[in-house]
């Protein structure tokens, strides 16, 4: 049996900043001060430029749905009670993509490119993550 602990984040120096933001209801992103380009997931450096440090900023929470799948069956004990759930990759308004869940949208209303907004949900006991719902 795989315990629920096996899917919970192991926070590090970088991710702790991001999860602290989530705890305050903020979706944080990083950007390159030189180019203005935003990045996700968080790193200690600018992707493609390991010598430059990113700066944090709060995202607008607006996104569009790049793709999704409604997971109907899961072999993982910690997700068996969640099915069906809608796994998605969204295009954040600031540019980067992130993996998330779409919540409170019936399956037949899901469409690629639909407008979304962030909503924070406790998806596992003790773990709140940014999810998205219809804007």
């Amino acid at each position: 049996m795989i315990e629920v602990d096996s899917i919970l984040p192991v926070k590090d120096a970088v991710s702790s900043v991001w999860f602290d933001g989530v705890a305050q209801g903020k979706l944080l992103l990083q950007r390159d001060a030189k180019t203005g380009k935003a990045q996700f997931y968080p790193r200690a450096h600018i992707t493609g430029a390991p010598d430059r440090e990113p700066e944090w900023f709060e995202a607008s929470g607006k996104a569009t749905l790049y793709s999704y799948t409604v997971v109907k069956r899961s072999v993982h004990p910690q997700f068996a009670s969640h099915v069906p759930f809608t796994l998605a990759v969204v295009d954040l308004a600031e540019g980067p993509r992130m993996t998330t869940w779409i919540v409170d949208v019936p399956e037949d209303e899901l469409r690629c490119d639909m407008a979304l907004k962030v909503t924070f949900r406790e998806i596992h006991p003790g773990l709140t993550m940014p999810c998205f719902t219809k804007a």
Binding site: S6, I7, L8, P9, V10, K11, D12, S15, W18, F40, Y41, P42, V71, S74, H76, Q78, F79, H82, F85, L87, M98, T99, T100, W101, I123, H124, L127, M129
Partner: peptide, 13 residues
Amino acid sequence: RTGPGQYEVPFGA
């Protein structure tokens, strides 16, 4: 669930 994976694994990808 460490490093990059911690932002995706909790969603059951």
